[in-house]
């Protein structure tokens, strides 16, 4: 946990005249789970998009595994080992579970130099990954449009648990989940982190943050309003950081 996986240094992002991020600096270690908290519009999703290549920062520097890094597209971020689960699901409902699980990284067999999809191999791996995670889906060949919100969420989470990468970004992954599925999802996050993968989870639910995170980072009005160890803080203290009543360990909120 000592080695830094991702270091953000004074990341700023402007949308026209609006300053969404006014200089964000924090870091994530290997195998560390960081919960990113903040009120609506604090800039959490913008920050995640910048790390995952969906947006480019206006200024600032990112170090990924000690090297300067800036993803121009999600594909670049993915190639570097950064996976993202978005608030609105990233599934293609018009194809089946297997196709979604392997989206963009299909297993192929070359016949006469032309890549053909190896459906059987992909189905096997998908079945194994989903059943070992305890997700019940009637058939791997069901189109995703016929699955419930919870099942869809499970596919998406399992996809990342399976592919791993080096850094996992989750943007409110449990918004549509039931109690049991949420618990399983949190277990999965701990499991992912135990493999040395850094995890950043955005959530609104304080309880989840305290259940799963090692560190809690609070963003308020585009700056880091608090960066504390979970064991050294309490939900009440964090709520105060979010709403801005106190400035425990805070950056320069409001006065620049």
């Amino acid at each position: 946990m000592t080695e830094k996986l991702l270091v953000l240094n004074d990341i700023r992002k402007n949308f026209g005249a609006i300053e969404a991020l006014k200089g964000i600096s924090f870091s994530i270690g290997k195998g560390e789970v960081v919960a990113l908290l903040g009120d609506n519009g604090a800039g959490k999703s913008t920050l995640v998009k910048i790390i995952s290549g969906g947006l480019q920062p206006t200024s600032g520097q990112m170090l990924f595994e000690g090297e300067e890094f800036e993803a121009k597209t999600p594909a670049e971020a993915k190639a570097a080992g950064i996976e993202t689960v978005y608030q609105d699901l990233s599934l293609c409902t018009n194809v089946d579970v297997v196709a979604n699980f392997f989206m963009g990284r299909e297993i192929t067999r070359k016949i006469a130099g032309i890549p053909f999809l190896d459906e059987r191999a992909m189905e096997e791996i998908t079945t194994k990954a989903l059943t070992s995670a305890g997700t019940r889906i009637p058939s791997m060949r069901t189109k995703v449009e016929h699955l419930s919100g919870g099942q869809r969420q499970a596919i998406e989470l399992n996809r990342f648990a399976h592919w791993g990468g080096k850094l996992l970004l989750l943007d409110e992954p449990f918004a549509a989940l039931g109690v049991e599925q949420t618990r399983r999802g949190l277990d999965m996050i701990r499991h992912v982190a135990s493999q040395g993968i850094g995890v950043v989870i955005i959530t609104h639910i304080m309880q989840q943050a305290f259940q799963v995170a090692d560190r809690i980072v609070v963003i308020r009005h585009g700056v880091v309003a608090g960066d504390v160890d979970r064991t050294k803080t309490s939900p009440d203290a964090v709520i105060e950081m979010i709403t801005g009543q106190t400035l425990t360990g805070a950056g320069p909120v409001g006065k620049q």
Partner: peptide, 12 residues
């Protein structure tokens, strides 16, 4: 054709 955003995010 099904979900262009999802395909883009998946690195396609």
């Amino acid at each position: 054709g099904g979900n262009e955003t999802a395909a883009y995010r998946a690195g396609i």
